[in-house]
Design a binder for these strands. Structure first.
Length: 113
DNA sequence: TCCGTGACACAAG
DNA sequence: CCTTGTGCCACGG
């Protein structure tokens, strides 16, 4: 399966009120250093997916082409109870633990995530 | 096949 | 805190 498709499948599983980071998505898929590639994928993410639940390692909304989508992301997050204070989200509280399994592989440990 | 491109991450200063 | 430098890698041209 194509990397981008795997990213989308995972993004679609992030629960309401929770978020995941680019690096986390990559790690969950078995590519711990492909965070940037996840960013590439997110650039073309299907609109029906909860794309707004993906943030960077600092818990902030990443820079992108149009400022509008950044604002939209913030609004969508706040609508589902994820507070954005001083430009960042408290990952301690909202980070998604990840699915129990990805494909047929069980996720044992993701290190300090 | 090689090469440039990022919605990144992390360590060091 | 912030800034810089480096590592990284899927993708498209």
């Amino acid at each position: 399966m194509r990397f981008h498709a795997a990213v989308y499948r995972l993004v679609g599983r992030i629960p309401r009120g929770q978020v995941a980071t680019y690096g986390q998505i990559a790690a969950l898929l078995g590519y711990p250093r492909a965070a940037r590639a996840v960013g590439q994928a997110m650039k073309h993410v299907p609109p029906h997916l909860p794309w707004h639940r993906v943030v960077n390692a600092r818990g902030a909304i990443s820079l992108r082409a149009n400022v509008g989508s950044m604002l939209t992301q913030r609004v969508l997050l706040e609508q589902e109870g994820v507070a954005v204070r001083r430009g960042r989200i408290r990952l301690r509280q909202h980070r998604w633990a990840g699915p129990r399994r990805v494909g047929r592989l069980r996720i044992a440990a993701l290190g300090r995530l």
